[in-house]
């Protein structure tokens, strides 16, 4: 009898171990502990109306030979901040209630789904927040974070030569010590840090945030 149970457990483990879900982000494999940077695209619908489109990634693909139960837990890593809308894993969209939520689905062999998680903000609002994601597929568990970042340019008018110690120099921006961040004019993060120095950048207009002050600088 003991041998039968041992064989049964081994068979179950083998069956379950065949469950293989690949997680990719921008075509690259997601590993345990990764932080995925999610930034939106500004879409102009005409008439001066714009919306933010967030990526659907990361993508979950069942690369195994049997159906796999996929269990995904999302936990907000902040208390004050925007709501998170979850439209992936299952087929309904709704904001996460509370600080954490779990969704479960079954992926057939070759089947795929996406996380499709994003903050509920308008193009005139900014965001810099993180959520933790724990994925369980069969016996496999993987955890990573998603970092949502977007800098609105609303209220930042005109170009200036210098702001709060940051100034445009030939080929880049000279930045002071202290927290700073550089964004494109459509809100995408280019660089952030706290050390003083010059950040080399392609020619163009950038939004520079030093502390709580934001302005536009032109890099020639």
């Amino acid at each position: 009898m003991k041998k039968i149970f041992t064989l049964l457990f081994a068979a179950m483990a083998l069956f379950t171990a065949k469950a293989q879900v690949n997680i990719t982000f921008n075509g690259q494999t997601v590993n345990n502990g990764d932080v995925l940077e999610l930034q939106p695209t500004l879409l102009d619908l005409g008439g001066g109306y714009t919306i933010l489109e967030w990526p659907f990634d990361p993508t979950f693909t069942n690369a195994g030979s049997s159906a796999t139960n996929l269990n995904v837990v999302v936990t907000k890593d902040y208390t004050d901040g925007p709501g998170l809308n979850w439209c992936g894993i299952t087929t309904d969209c709704m904001p996460i209630s509370g600080s954490s939520e779990t969704r479960t689905t079954t992926l057939q062999p070759g089947g795929m789904t996406t996380l499709h998680l994003y903050p509920l903000i308008e193009p005139t609002e900014s965001v810099d927040c993180t959520a933790s994601v724990q994925v369980m597929a069969g016996l496999n568990v993987l955890s990573f974070k998603v970092h949502f970042v977007y800098q609105s340019t609303a209220g930042i008018d005109g170009l200036t030569a210098e702001t709060a110690g940051a100034k445009a120099v030939e080929g880049g921006i000279a930045l002071p010590a202290g927290p700073w961040a550089v964004y494109t004019v459509d809100g995408r993060l280019v660089a952030k840090g706290s050390d003083a120095g010059t950040k080399l950048l392609p020619r163009g207009i950038y939004v520079v945030k030093c502390g709580t002050t934001s302005q536009k600088l032109l890099v020639d």
Binding site: L45, G46, G47, Y49, I51, N85, C93, P95, L120
Partner: peptide, 10 residues
């Protein structure tokens, strides 16, 4: 709701 677009764009 939050996934709709307001008039006149939506």
């Amino acid at each position: 709701g939050p996934l709709s677009l307001p008039a006149p764009a939506g």
